[in-house]
């Protein structure tokens, strides 16, 4: 072994860039910096998420504290002084004198929480079932994928309403309002796992046939270890894309359910609940109670969705 060649590396010594420089220069960020749509939607999402997270610090009023509410402030138009109290509200107030800007911030918290939690639930269920279906195959696969197909033939919102109804039936009436949010998460999460399962199964079938999986089998690794340590990390990038787009859909699903009155209760209003409340005042001239929550919902869902679209292109090597 005397004349083994030296490591056939490039002959020119390159200075190793720092970790941070490496990330900054990575293909992914490079593409990000070249896409104005991605940058704008990312900025909008960050702005909305951060203001929801820090709502207690940002909101000028606490809409859920009856002590700070003044019924006299009801129906104040945006930016104008109230007739009786001379208070002004940036985005106006609703019928009970709650500051619309503050209710939107708090409503967004609920919407985002439900959205994230539901997607997380759908992801866990979908990835698990997809991995098992793809790797194990046979009857297990047939059963999982047929269930998925059947569920796919129903509109997701219908499935969510069904699950919501059933789950509500099981909760004792005194806990209903308290549990509503969790039931909502369960309903949306269960209605959305199919996409994850399908994509993960497809990707698993591809990875399973690759030789590195054979090599792992060869040394006696268990199917569980192979699925978890080898296949899972390799099927995550499509999952990330779907998760982002699902988040937009989950937020809209939550709003739809709440709008229909089967979602978040008025004591914990989400954006959907706010829109439902505001819709009652549209024709009496108090347009701002409906308009501002709707714009927020639109901005949130749209920017998350655009981000997801961009992510799909960015992670797809074929489109580069």
């Amino acid at each position: 072994m005397t004349d083994l060649p030296q490591s056939p590396d490039t002959p020119i010594a390159v200075k190793k860039p720092s970790r941070l420089q490496e990330i900054w220069a990575s293909d992914f960020l490079w593409q990000f910096r070249r896409s104005p749509v991605a940058m704008v939607s990312f900025a909008v999402v960050m702005l909305l998420v951060l203001s929801a997270v820090f709502a207690p610090l940002i909101a000028p009023h606490d809409p859920f504290n009856p002590a700070t509410l003044n019924l006299m402030n009801g129906f104040t138009p945006p930016g104008e002084a109230n007739m009786f109290t001379q208070d002004t509200f940036f985005l106006g107030t609703d019928d009970q004198g709650r500051d619309v800007f503050s209710t939107i911030l708090y409503g967004m918290r609920i919407s985002l929480f439900v959205g994230f939690a539901a997607v997380l639930l759908a992801m866990v269920i979908g990835i698990t079932l997809g991995l098992i279906a793809g790797y194990v195959g046979g009857w297990t696969e047939t059963i999982i994928m047929r269930v998925a197909d059947v569920q796919l033939t129903f509109p997701a919102i219908l499935v969510a309403m069904l699950i919501f109804g059933i789950a509500k039936g099981f909760t004792p009436p005194e806990y209903r309002d308290q549990m509503a949010i969790w039931v909502l998460i369960l309903a949306i999460g269960l209605s959305d796992w199919v996409q994850f399962a399908r994509v993960v199964r497809g990707a698993t079938l591809v990875e399973k046939s690759k030789e590195y999986v054979q090599a792992a089998k060869l040394i006696g690794r268990t199917p569980f270890a192979i699925m978890l340590r080898h296949i899972l990390p390799n099927v995550l990038s499509p999952v990330l894309v779907i998760a982002t787009i699902s988040l937009a859909l989950a937020i809209i699903a939550e709003a739809t359910l709440s709008f229909l009155g089967v979602g978040a209760p008025p004591t914990q209003p989400s954006l959907g609940t706010l829109i439902r409340i505001g819709q009652g005042f549209l024709f009496s001239g108090e347009w701002w109670i409906l308009l501002f929550p709707s714009i927020t919902l639109l901005a949130l869902a749209l920017s998350v969705n655009l981000l997801g679209d961009w992510l799909r292109d960015a992670l797809n090597p074929k489109l580069r």
Binding site: P5, P8, D9, P11
Partner: peptide
Amino acid sequence: HQIPGSMPRLGALPDGCAFNP
């Protein structure tokens, strides 16, 4: 018989003759 090393990537060609290293 073997040629040491491998063909350089296009982005990292050496100066002069591409085969010189």
